[in-house]
Design a protein around this nucleic acid. Structure first.
Length: 831
RNA sequence: GCCGGGGUGGCGGAACGGCAGACGCAUCGGACUUAAAAUCCGAAGGGACGAAGGUCCCGUGUGGGUUCGAAUCCCACCCCCGGCACCA
């Protein structure tokens, strides 16, 4: 009798006692670092989505192990952060008490699920032995000039009462609580990730990652090629050759554009309402209107402001600038459709060729002047320099190969792209233009005005300014404070803990004050995988030898939701540590594969829907093996699938039958292969399962195993031990407990993961002597015939023609053509 | 709007130029049982004809195309999911 609860408990105890899953980190000869994204240990318990991801990753790890690799498969807990803090606030506990309970609960479930973790090398980001090195990493960036404190407009969540990184703002709302985000001008710590943007982009071309993830990163980085142009302010004359270009630029409005070719159509300019030049440009008579508009914008939250479909609003400043190409003076407006944080916070308005500018010009009666048109439209007989193009209800924005410039002086008639380059060159001679690449990506704001994170290791000295905490003083311990509530004014909770922040300057001893902000959780997770092999080394973040042996990560499996956050930050931190000489590699993950998303009965799983699945009850009822098998069977791992309770019955029955068949084989005592069909099925199954594990297609691997079992036990047949031994091995990555038990009962030495050889297949044994060939007439199936493998067309055709059904369809018509694919198909084309 | 991914039986999904629906769930029929559950055996995309073995037609979101042959490749469109979005 198959009793999963007993079997699973026995083998989990065996693994723990024998330290089966703890590779020798110093001497492993064929190291394989199998990594999965560590979870946030929530108070609600381990989510089935976590277990889905972990199981898929675990199968890959176990498979690599059976292929002879020394697999290191660690787990840790991403336990700092707003989520934990909010949960503690909600249930009225302290995170320092709550988190260890959550972690213990997670560990219990993960052990119960039979994941091959090395429990002697876990990471907890809230452990001072860990965050000490998170602080150390901050210091390395600080010393390298890659961490800077600057006053900047930042995203402020009024509900969480903290600053958010751009990546944490989803459609203008806080990713945590969905509250519309405000902009505030605050002094914050930033990591200069923008300095690495080209490398982050370039390496995407060669790292082995899911293509969709690479695309998401490219989009996020948002490289756009264009030019910077300077429109001199009107009260100054246009800077001529005799002027210093630097001077000219200081007295001008700088814009970024991807369409410098359209500058002759720039009939006005728009500044973001917060733009520093607004004050200077605003005329006395427009001052009130400008101020009113600025106030109105400031009062609007980002969600409202960034609505695309919203009608265009704005205010005229009363000031003018000069279009450096035409020499015409153009009015300068402010409008909220221009955003301070993208480009230069100012644009040239080209209403004929930009839909937004078009709408704005229409609203305020500004000139609309087309300067680009297709050759076909112009025709051969017209002069592009004076072409009269009428603009309809929309801007003319298509950007095609055959467009040429019109109404653009001497550039008229040039192809648009070429003309754009020529114009930028020409403006460049006067210092008023240059090619420029702009990025959507901003520097990474790591300051958080919250409690539950690693304190940023900096001291502000009244005498000597910003001082890093000496490395020897790390960690800066997060004190246990009772009132860890965030503050609406943006003051960090630690700023209320005088014992914490009052310290002498580490350099001069004068009165100093600690930084009271903590760092972003994403900094914790940007390097956690580097710590795993070096857990236990107290005097260094990562040991050189261990790191060399195990990193970079061989396989990383995780959710697509981290495509642009965690994965980008950890690449950045790895590059920095590489450049500073701490690492020998610059990309952290050799391979990354995303897993799909689980839904339940067609609906998204979420707390608010109340359809959250906790694995505990299922493991309790069906056993970990059956639950794992079901999770992996319900759909392609990389695409996700639909979880339905009733579906577990299939895998559950399958495992019972495996048990009965193997036990039956052992009791029967027969060896060898007496049935060529079974042997053939075995070899085909080994081939299929091997390919599927390799490519993470676990659902079809399991289907293949079910298929094979159906062959083995057909019509009350009793299997031989040689027929079932490979089945046990092939199944073991998915259902490790039952596999261990059956392996042992087959009189083999445990553990199957150390003792078994991965089964090999013989292509020749998969082939039969005969093949079944479908016979089509005009592409429609009319019969199947059995012929010898490799039979010639003549032979196949002869056999086919004897089929009554084929002959009938050939009656009275002429065979015009015969398509024969050897061993695959015969198609008779009649006319 | 832009960028990804996807639309196949009652359901989850296979197949990804060559016998559509593997494998499984649910369903139905049978065996076992006093009975039920469990287990085992079998049926099954839809339709038409046939007593039956069978035979034919229709079928992979819609419409076109390429091909001897298309779920699979190409073009256009519709719908769903995920991401980004007044990004200049």
């Amino acid at each position: 009798m198959y009793e999963p609860d007993k079997t699973e408990a026995r083998w989990q105890a065996f693994w723990a006692e024998q330290r089966t899953n703890e590779p020798d980190l110093d001497h492993a000869e064929r190291p394989f670092f199998n990594l999965m994204m560590y979870p946030y240990p929530s108070g609600e318990g381990l989510h089935v989505g976590n277990l889905y991801a972990f199981t898929g990753a675990d199968i890959f790890g176990r498979y690599q192990r059976l292929r002879g690799r020394d697999v290191f498969e660690p787990i840790g807990f991403d336990a700092f952060g707003i989520h934990s803090e909010n949960y503690a606030l909600q249930v009225g506990t302290h995170p320092m008490d709550q988190i260890p309970r959550n972690i213990a609960n997670f560990e219990r479930v993960l052990r119960r699920a039979g994941i091959m973790y090395d429990w002697s090398h876990t990471v907890d980001t809230t452990d001072p032995d860990y965050y000490r090195w998170t602080q150390w990493i901050f210091l390395q960036l600080f010393k390298a000039g890659l961490a800077e404190k600057k006053e900047a407009p930042v995203n402020w969540c009024p509900s969480c009462q903290t600053v958010l990184a751009n990546e944490q703002v989803i459609a203008g709302r806080c990713e945590r609580c969905d509250t519309p985000v405000e902009q505030r001008l605050l002094s914050q710590w930033f990591f200069r990730i923008t300095q690495y943007v080209e490398r982050l982009l370039a390496n995407l071309d060669w790292i082995d990652w899911s293509e969709t993830t690479k695309v998401a990163q490219r989009n996020w980085i948002g490289r756009s090629d264009g030019a910077r142009l300077w429109f001199p302010l009107e009260q100054r004359e246009i800077a001529g050759d005799s002027h210093d270009p630097e001077q000219a630029r200081r007295e001008a409005i700088e814009v970024f554009t991807t369409r410098p070719d359209t500058i002759y159509g720039a009939t006005y300019m728009v500044l973001a309402p917060e733009h520093p030049l607004v004050e200077r440009l605003a005329s006395a008579e427009q001052q009130d209107e400008v101020n009113a508009y600025q106030r109105a914008t400031a009062a609007t939250d980002l969600v409202e402001r960034r609505k695309t479909e919203k009608a265009k609003t704005g205010a005229f400043t009363g000031g003018y600038a000069v279009n450096p190409a035409t020499g015409n003076r153009v009015p300068v407006w402010i409008a909220d459709y221009v955003l301070m944080e993208y480009g230069t916070g100012a644009i040239m308005g080209v209403p004929a060729h930009d839909q937004r500018d078009f709408e704005f010009a229409r609203e305020f009666g500004l000139d609309i002047l087309p300067v680009v048109a297709s050759k076909a439209l112009i025709g051969a007989d017209q002069d592009p320099a004076a072409f009269d193009l009428r603009v309809g209800e929309e801007a003319f924005v298509e950007h095609t190969e055959d467009e040429v410039l019109i109404n653009s002086d001497r550039f008229s008639g040039l192809a648009a792209e070429e003309g754009g380059r020529a114009i930028v060159d020409w403006l460049g001679e006067r210092g008023l233009g240059e090619p420029h690449v702009n990025y959507r990506l901003h520097d990474w704001c790591i300051s958080r005005q919250r409690y539950w994170g690693p304190p940023i290791p900096v001291i502000y000295c009244s005498e000597c300014g910003i001082q890093p905490v000496p490395e020897s003083d790390l960690p800066v311990l997060l004190p246990h404070v009772e009132d860890f509530r965030p503050d609406a004014g943006g003051v960090a909770p630690l700023a209320r803990a005088e014992d914490f922040y009052r310290v002498p300057c580490p350099d001069c001893g004068a009165e100093g004050r600690r930084e009271t902000d903590v760092s972003d959780t994403f900094l914790d997770s940007a390097w956690y995988f580097m710590r795993y092999p070096s857990v236990g080394f107290d005097d260094r973040p990562f040991d050189a030898e261990r790191t060399k042996r195990w990193l970079p990560v061989d396989m990383y499996i995780g959710g697509e939701e981290h495509a642009v956050l965690h994965l980008l930050y950890s690449r950045f931190i790895t590059m920095v540590l590489h450049d500073l000489g701490h690492l020998t590699f610059e990309e952290p993950y050799k391979r990354f594969r995303k897993h799909g998303l689980l839904i339940k009965e067609g609906a998204k799983i979420s707390k608010s829907r109340g359809n959250v699945i906790l694995p505990d009850q299922y493991i309790e009822r069906y056993g970990a093996d059956a639950f794992r098998t079901y999770l992996m069977f319900l759909g392609p791992f990389q695409e996700g699938g639909d979880f339905r309770d009733v579906g577990i019955a299939g895998p559950e029955r399958f495992l019972k039958r495996v048990w009965d068949s193997v036990i039956g084989a052992i009791e029967g005592g027969r060896t060898g292969f007496d049935d060529p069909d079974v042997e053939r099925a075995l070899h085909a199954t080994i081939r299929q399962v091997t390919q599927d594990y390799e490519s993470l297609e676990y659902n079809t691997a399991i289907a293949a195993l079910m298929d094979y079992l159906n062959v083995v036990r057909a019509e009350g047949r009793t299997a031989s031990v040689d027929e079932v031994r490979p089945l046990v091995v092939l199944l073991s990555p998915v259902a490790p407990h039952i596999a261990e038990e059956l392996w042992a009962r087959l009189d083999e030495e445990p553990s199957v993961f150390d003792q078994a050889e991965w089964p090999t297949y013989d292509e020749a044994k998969i082939h039969t002597d005969d093949v079944e060939i479908p016979v089509q007439v005009n592409g429609k199936l009319r019969a199947t015939v059995r012929v010898e493998r490799g039979a010639s067309q003549d032979v196949v055709q002869e056999v086919a023609l004897q089929e009554e059904n084929v002959a009938r369809h050939l009656e009275g018509v002429e065979v015009r053509k015969v398509v024969h694919v050897p061993d695959r198909l015969l198609n008779l084309v009649v006319g």
